[in-house]
Design a protein around this nucleic acid. Structure first.
Lengths: 207, 207, 207, 207
DNA sequence: GATGAATGAGGTTTCATTCAT
DNA sequence: AATGAATGAAACCTCATTCAT
């Protein structure tokens, strides 16, 4: 949109940048940071090596850019998703659906994000991790807010600390997604978000 | 135990091997696979580089060995833990406690295990991942068995597929542990396993 | 002067060329040939990279041009200086003062010239050195002429080969200047040229 | 000598190191620091690239080592030369002969040394220059001491500051050597040191 | 004519692996 | 059997130069 208004040259540059990021993302997510060379990325993006370095200071910069740009986008999308309803339960449902949709739309990045945010990454010298982790925590806090408000409203029981509940829900979603990614035939990611929420809704024990 | 019966030579070799694996584990878990050199491992283990290669075919082999040996050990320990009781609820409690204890005893490996099993690892050329994942699934299946038996016994309600519940429980445990590892002062790992199980025991919604 | 007669276009080009040469000289003298990029020169001169290449075939050509143009200028100035007097002693005094003034007016280039003419420069693939050295020898020959004439006139004693004396005088001047450049507070360059000439005037040994 | 007493392995290493330094010196002195690649040095020394890096941290380290090792050696040889006589005039004669001999024995290094000590070198990031220059000044001070003592003894006239005289003598020697290096047929380096000293002994002006 | 984005050869350096001792 | 010196492929990155606009 805003892109339309940019001078042709600028738009062109932006497009190139996107292509480089896309090529890099695909390779990184397939083979991991250390197993991808800048040469390889340049070839996949169909640019010369030097051109890559015109856009990104170095390999780490390229990697960080991918991660952080997507994180930003992801965080914003989360915020919008949660803002679509004021009903806490509905918010949780939407969040689950949103996560599922994102993954389906955006497989390569999911791999990177999971590898970075959940596993402990040694790919980069400390510094990136912190940034990614901080953003992850910000998202969790949004989710924790939903649980907290639900408890204040007396819609939810205080079965655990809201932040911990948020982390738990998120990890259950991740797990579902990971299982599904691993073997889509065996482990489906539920269309119906209640299938996941049931874990939290219904007590496990027989009354 | 069995070691006692081996000829002195063999015992000696086994001890050396253990020292190498220990040195490698510590370094890998601190700095990541790619940021550790074989030279470095040899120095930490106080062996010559060549000797390292007498015991392990190459760097990847050394890495796989660490992962798989520990996985085996972990799987066996799980089995024993679950076998200590026949009460399903008690089994879950013991499993949670067991996971917490393991982490506390065995921090360096936990880092590797989480990085490898949950995140998607790019350290190795395909092949290891499969093996590690397969073993992870075997553990989940043991846990799923607990849920399934509980449902058969009518102790548990059928709120979800037992395998999925197992994965969910495990991921919630992992999340607790990860939060705790990240910032032990802010995110504690609960002494009382029920704090985690409450998520599954008590329904979230007010009745 | 001659510039005035050139068409406006030509004058403009000449001015641009001078700006490029000036920018390049400053950078080369500060950081050395190999540590300056063409990009950097273009930026300092406020021209586009391509424009630089319109004026100079390549980096080496630009460098040679700086050296040779200045050499030419220097040689001419020497000639004028020596022509200002017919008294050999006065010529030597004027030469010494001239060298000192040049250095003070023209520090950046002095650095380059010394680096090139005295030290053995590897900056350029053979070829330039020869040209610079040839010009240096021409200057020495002018100076040698002064000594030779002084000997013919019987003003000077034939203490050594005139050419060698010229080289010796020049090297003593250079040394004074180098010491002064290195640490102006400790090693001053004498205002009075006789302070340098005394080495040659007065015998060292007590009579 | 002492080498004989080293374990064979150590001697071997030392020999290899010398070969690397020799190969590097030859190449650097022929083509200049920036025009020689580590690959090239390794090939000339007949070692693998990696082996070069076992002995020297990086290219700069290799270069500095050459310069500083030789400087040290040179400084020590100067000291010994000057110590061979207590007669100031004889000391100067020996110094001149010593410089000439050194150059003849040690051409490649002379090129580097002159390039480094006299010209202004940009080859290395500041730091080496300082060290080389400091050592050069130490040598000058030894020589200045000779002049100072001669003046105290009333053997020499106080025609100039002793330090300046030392620098002047040294630069005249360098000039002779440079001229000789440039064109040995035209410019000979005098067998008889008095040919150089005459410049200082005998006043230039007719009495 | 001027521009500067694009190129890619070539430089430095690391490190898994081998093999003579 | 144990060693660790030697190897060299391959990574990252720079920068002189070209050429389409």
């Amino acid at each position: 949109m805003a892109d339309r208004k940019l001078p042709r040259r600028e738009r062109e540059k932006l497009r190139q940048r996107q292509e480089m990021l896309a090529a890099a993302l695909e390779l990184f997510s397939q083979k991991g940071y250390h197993n991808v060379s800048m040469q390889e990325i340049a070839e996949k993006a169909e640019f010369a090596l030097g051109t890559l370095y015109k856009f990104f200071q170095n390999k780490e910069d390229l990697y960080k850019t991918i991660l952080l740009e997507r994180c930003e986008d992801f965080e914003e999308a989360c915020r919008r998703t949660l803002a679509q309803s004021e009903d806490e339960l509905e918010q949780l449902r939407r969040y689950i659906r949103f996560r599922g949709d994102r993954v389906r739309q955006n497989l390569p990045f999911v791999r990177l994000f999971l590898a970075e945010s959940r596993g402990i990454s040694f790919n980069l010298k400390a510094g990136l991790d912190d940034e990614v982790r901080r953003r992850y925590y910000r998202i969790l806090e949004q989710l924790a807010g939903v649980f907290a408000r639900g408890m204040d409203n007396r819609r939810f029981r205080k079965i655990a600390d809201p932040y911990f509940l948020a982390a738990a829900l998120d990890s259950v979603i991740d797990t579902s997604l990971l299982l599904w990614l691993d073997d889509p035939r065996r482990h489906f990611f539920p269309e119906d978000p209640d299938a996941i929420l049931d874990i939290f809704f219904k007590g496990l024990m027989q009354p």
